[in-house]
């Protein structure tokens, strides 16, 4: 773990990614302590204010503090990403391993399900589901999770297929290890590594999907301060104030850039083919 972190820190882009990710995570964790105002407190007489000491990033069309809303928006962005990816990770891991061990006919059924889900662009599928069921935080998490399952499932299956006939597992089997032990003690830990890298690469994608849905008005319902909602407000009131659009866009850029650079650095750090030191 320490060695992996050191390898990430060793690359310029990895270091930048790590710093940005730490900033975003700290923003989310410490939002109630750092935010100077209640993110939903309206002050109509103070709307469209530029940055001031009282409102460091200005105020929106209802006089709400943009900085406080962005900080709380970090919680929504990360919350949706982490929960969606966690659900997809576990479901993909289990289905992928199952597909590798099940008879060919059942394996085929799982792969067809993966193909069907993958054939829908995630944003379009999310829009369709939201149109049917209505918007909501948990619905978004569920939709994003479902669209990511094939992503994890395919990698888990490929890794399991490569591992299941390897000599060290064969030796375990000869020594009398149960199938459950083989999967839990050997397959899951070995398969999880690549999936963690995938997960880190998916975080910016999910942040963008959540923000996109909220921008279109079908994501997190108001007054929750999703970054997408803030961007939409900024776009709608661009004539009166540029600050909402600028800062919401900046927050989104920092988070997606940070996680992308961090994910790439993590991938490079754990991939033995790319490792240069012994």
């Amino acid at each position: 773990m320490t060695a992996t972190l050191a390898r990430i820190w060793g690359s310029g882009t990895g270091r930048l990614g790590l710093v940005l990710v730490v900033l975003v995570v700290l923003g989310a964790l410490l939002a109630p302590l750092i935010a100077p105002h209640d993110p939903n407190q309206i002050a109509v007489m103070n709307r469209f204010s530029g940055p001031t000491l009282q409102n460091p990033l200005g105020t929106d069309q209802l006089g709400r503090d943009i900085f406080s809303r962005l900080l709380y928006g970090t919680r929504i962005a990360l919350g949706v990403s982490i929960l969606s990816i966690l659900i997809a990770f576990v479901a993909g891991l289990l289905l992928g391993i199952a597909a590798a061990y099940l008879p060919p006919r059942l394996e085929r059924v799982i792969l067809i399900i993966f193909d069907i889900i993958s054939s829908f662009p995630s944003l379009v599928l999310a829009l369709a589901v939201v149109a049917l069921l209505g918007p909501g935080l948990w619905k978004i998490i569920l939709i994003v999770s479902v669209t990511l399952v094939p992503h994890f499932g395919r990698v888990a299956r490929a890794q399991t297929l490569a591992l299941k006939n390897s000599p060290f597992l064969e030796a375990e089997r000869v020594l009398g290890a149960s199938p459950a032990r083989l999967v839990l003690v050997h397959i899951v830990p070995n398969v999880s590594g690549p999936l963690v890298v995938l997960a880190s690469m998916d975080i910016p994608v999910v942040i963008a999907i959540e923000a996109g849905l909220s921008f279109l008005g079908v994501g997190v319902p108001p007054p929750s301060p999703s970054w997408g909602t803030l961007l939409n407000d900024g776009y709608a009131y661009l004539d009166q104030s540029i600050w909402m659009a600028v800062f919401a866009g900046l927050a989104l850029t920092i988070a997606t850039l940070g996680f992308t650079l961090f994910g790439e650095a993590l991938r490079d750090a754990v991939d033995p083919k790319l490792r240069t030191e012994p």
Partner: peptide, 10 residues
């Protein structure tokens, strides 16, 4: 209308 709705909500 969205702004009116948000104010009414508050």
């Amino acid at each position: 209308y969205q702004t009116a709705g948000l104010v009414a909500q508050a």
